[in-house]
């Protein structure tokens, strides 16, 4: 169990770094959504099912959608 969630935390940190160094903005938005998804798993391991549901519905679903709408409105410019 300890190894499992240590690996999940490692994966979360790697996705966080990847979200900042990807060139295409779509890739980094999806990586940021992945960080939220893994955080939802971690909340479940911490015995917080309410927070896990909120993070999965809001952090993973709605924020990713809002980022992608903004990206579309700004036509994907930038580095």
């Amino acid at each position: 169990m300890t190894l499992l969630y240590s690996l999940l935390i490692l994966l979360m940190l790697i996705s966080g770094i990847a979200a900042l160094i990807f060139d295409k903005l779509v890739n980094s938005i999806i990586s940021a959504g992945m960080v939220s998804l893994i955080a939802a798993f971690l909340f479940y391991f911490l015995r917080a099912p309410d927070v896990a549901m909120a993070e999965a519905a809001i952090g993973t679903g709605l924020s990713t959608a809002i980022f992608i709408i903004t990206l579309y409105k700004t036509e994907g410019r930038g580095n």
Partner: peptide
């Protein structure tokens, strides 16, 4: 588990 914030987010989705 669950409640107004989670359910509200599901309806908004």
């Amino acid at each position: 588990p669950g409640g107004s914030f989670q359910g509200g987010a599901v309806i908004a989705t």
